[in-house]
């Protein structure tokens, strides 16, 4: 039983660490696609580890089955959403940042045909005032 407790602790710690890493990546990485990858990859594994940690701690009961179902849902839903978002962003004209400049700037040459580029710049101006 002590081993199960240790396992649960390790799962919880590792899961918490992974989720935290993903959030730091979501905040710090330079463009949308890198942020997407940081958020989705860590999130899926971190979620599974955290839920397994809780499962080991509760012991075998009806909730265990529901938690397994929850893991299944997250394992399917998260990658699907990531795929859909990536596709939508690529169609919508977001371009990956090729050079490493200061974060928050898409450093591709501005394309006058592309309405979304202009939109991004106006949005940065608007939301820069939002409370941090």
């Amino acid at each position: 039983m002590i081993i199960i407790g240790w396992l649960s602790d390790v799962c919880l710690l590792l899961g918490g660490f992974l989720v935290l890493t993903g959030a730091v990546g979501l905040l710090r990485l330079p463009d949308f696609f890198t942020r997407l990858h940081a958020a989705s990859v860590t999130e899926t594994l971190g979620a599974v580890l955290l839920i397994i940690g809780i499962m080991l701690d509760t012991g075998l009961m009806l909730d265990t089955a529901k938690l397994i179902l929850l893991i299944c849902v997250m394992f399917i839903a998260n990658p699907t959403i990531t795929h859909g978002l990536c596709r939508a962003a690529a169609h919508g004209g977001i371009k990956p940042a090729m050079e490493t400049k200061s974060p928050m700037q898409n450093s591709t040459p501005s394309d006058s045909k592309n309405i979304y580029e202009n939109q991004i710049q106006t949005e940065t101006g608007v939301s820069g005032k939002a409370p941090k």
Binding site: E123, V126, S127, K129, A130, P131
Partner: peptide
């Protein structure tokens, strides 16, 4: 509270 202030400030209705 942070969300309320941000949604007053931001003019993009989608956001």
């Amino acid at each position: 509270i942070m969300i309320v202030f941000a949604s007053i400030k931001i003019t993009d209705l989608f956001a």
